Simulated assay, not measured.
Amino acid sequence: MRPRRVITTRAGGRSVAPFATFNLSAGVGDDPAAVAANRARASRELGIPLVFLKQVHGTTVATVDTVPEPGEPDRPDTDAVVTALPGVGIAVLAADCVPVLLADPGAGVVGAAHAGRVGAAAGVVPATVAAMEALGARRRAIEVLLGPAICGSCYEVPAAMQAEVDAALPGSAVRTRAGTPGLDLRAGIYHQLTALGVGKVGADLRCTNEEPTLYSHRGDGPTGRQAAITWLHQD
């Protein structure tokens, strides 16, 4: 089995402004019928059922051990998910937060985490690694993709907030393009993963605030969410 990963964009869906057009979140005020159609298309195009989460910026990790039914409700109050089931896509949604996709190809285990400022500082990524280990993954064999997120040059925060997050997530404090206090959550998560002994960490360095094909909550206000999806593909 080989792990596969996909990051969706704004293009190709049924949603209308301000969610245009391929919004995959059921929690941002979009027409539920449009979201359902977009999710059905994503599932159809990938050829796999998809599991979505009702994300709350926490550290709860769900384990998927049964194939989801079409239209199954989002897993409640959950910000990460792991599975060893082949052919089941696990998804996290983001529009500035860091979507984190993880896989141990040898063990046949994949994971996905939604790591915003609060969840990343609270430890959602280490919790996801631990849940993968419970399914047989080995952290030195885990490969990680840090998906598109708002970059440190754009993510301005108050100095006190920056200090608080950097204390929990060392390496995340930066200066923005304007010279003000900022956060680079991808950098902080990278340091967190390497400190855990995770074997390989890469990043999609697109900034959601700068890339018009991606949703950005900070840049666009009310808007949709793209998905980061991973699954185990049977050869």
Rank of each mutant, 00 (worst) to 15 (best):
P181C: 04
A134R: 15
G58Q: 08
N209W: 15
L214S: 06
C97M: 03
D96Q: 09
A130P: 05
I90N: 05
V92G: 02
S15C: 14
V125E: 00
R10I: 08
R139I: 14
T59E: 04
L169H: 03
V61H: 02
P70E: 10
C97H: 05
L232Y: 05
G188R: 08
V6H: 04
G221L: 12
H217Y: 08
T176S: 03
G197F: 09
A130F: 09
R2M: 00
P181I: 11
I142T: 14
V51P: 08
L53F: 07
P68V: 15
A163G: 00
L102I: 07
A131G: 06
P68S: 07
V100C: 02
A163K: 01
I229Y: 06
R225V: 00
V144R: 02
L196W: 08
A227D: 05
A121V: 12
N209R: 00
H217M: 05
T176Y: 12
S25L: 11
P18N: 00
A107Q: 12
V174Q: 04
A131P: 12
P158A: 00
D96I: 14
R225C: 11
P18Q: 03
L85K: 13
I150Y: 11
D184P: 11
A203I: 13
F22E: 00
L93W: 12
V109A: 04
C97K: 04
I189E: 03
E143D: 13
P170V: 13
I189H: 00
L205N: 09
A131V: 11
H233D: 11
A203N: 03
G219Y: 07
R117Q: 12
V110M: 08
G108P: 00
T21N: 09
P158T: 04
G179H: 10
E143T: 15
H191Y: 13
G224T: 06
R5Y: 06
S153V: 14
H217A: 13
T9M: 06
L46C: 03
R75W: 10
D220V: 00
D235P: 12
